[in-house]
Design a protein around this nucleic acid. Structure first.
Lengths: 178, 178
DNA sequence: GTCTATAATTTGATAGAC
DNA sequence: GTCTATCAAATTATAGAC
């Protein structure tokens, strides 16, 4: 059972970072949307770096949990890659922003080290998941390379679709994986 | 012949945005690196939005000019796609930052409208260039989709390679285009 | 846990001298 | 064109009352 108020702070911050980046959110904006004062946000997360690192850690866990185990998806008769693509597509449409990992990956040069580390963890976990997915599918070739290609394509497609305000960029791009 | 001081401001700002994003640069930081005062930067570019929009317009022109015409590349016996990939790879290695288009595409939610428009122009120009490239190569299939896939993959590969500090992510990902 | 109050700094931007 | 000087606002962060 997670602390509900802290979780609300993390959710609100995640939305702001995914829409405008690490340097576009502030303690005051988060506090206002949560309905408390900025000093109260500092009580839960002392520094901006700690808050963003916590957001990223939570995002990674939620994302990996949400898509499930690739072996289970495959056993149920679905393609894990199709499920993976759908997760990105839904995130793009519903949240009016890009993937947190892609955003922070681009902004690396202005991030605290703890946030960079959590962002790397996000991508490591995604590549690992995709390697298992392609293993299930009996992919012949360099599985790690294929996993990197898949996550790269999805991140790029999401970002371009986001700025072009046209889901066709995402859908046309992801055709390459089918 | 372009104004040298204004060009220096644009170059310095481009580097800062490509490393940390739109919200990570300031008039003072740019001025300091150029060797003038922030008020002098305002003289050349009155607002932050105007400066960033000018940076993006210049970046697009420079990038498209640098890679040359796809038809000319093809006629010389090279693959335009290989040249295109090399342009991204060089930019990643030499500039310690991601593509300006990818960065701003992710940060769309915190950008002035004029910057968003210039970012869209960057991607439109890139897709157009890539369509001509695949036309040269006699690509069978949906050429526009193939162009979108190519730029999406490169943007994503660049961003992930940037945060992982590992060029293997870029090189493995771009294998998909060969 | 949340508040008020505030410190210390940075920010985008302008006025006016030279 | 560049400077000094300055402003109003926003920022991260802390101290201390309740």
């Amino acid at each position: 059972m997670s602390n509900s108020k802290e979780d609300l702070i993390l959710q609100v911050t995640e939305n702001m970072v995914r829409q405008g980046g690490y340097n576009s959110f502030s303690f005051r904006k988060v506090a206002e949307e949560v309905g408390i004062k900025s000093a109260s946000v500092h009580y839960h997360f002392p520094t901006k770096g700690e808050l963003a690192a916590a957001v990223t850690k939570r995002y990674t866990e939620n994302f990996i949990n949400a898509i499930g185990q690739p072996e289970a998806i495959y056993a149920s008769g679905q393609s894990p890659i199709t499920v993976y693509i759908s997760a990105f597509r839904t995130a793009l449409i519903e949240d009016n922003g890009v993937c947190l990992g892609g955003m922070l990956g681009a902004e690396t040069g202005s991030l605290p080290e703890s946030v960079i580390e959590e962002t790397r963890e996000f991508f490591s976990r995604n590549v690992e998941w995709l390697e298992r997915a392609y293993q299930c599918l009996g992919y012949k070739g360099d599985i790690k390379a294929k996993a990197m290609q898949t996550v790269s394509l999805l991140e790029g497609a999401m970002i371009i679709s986001n700025v072009m305000k046209d889901i066709a960029y995402f859908d046309s791009s992801t055709e390459l994986l089918k």
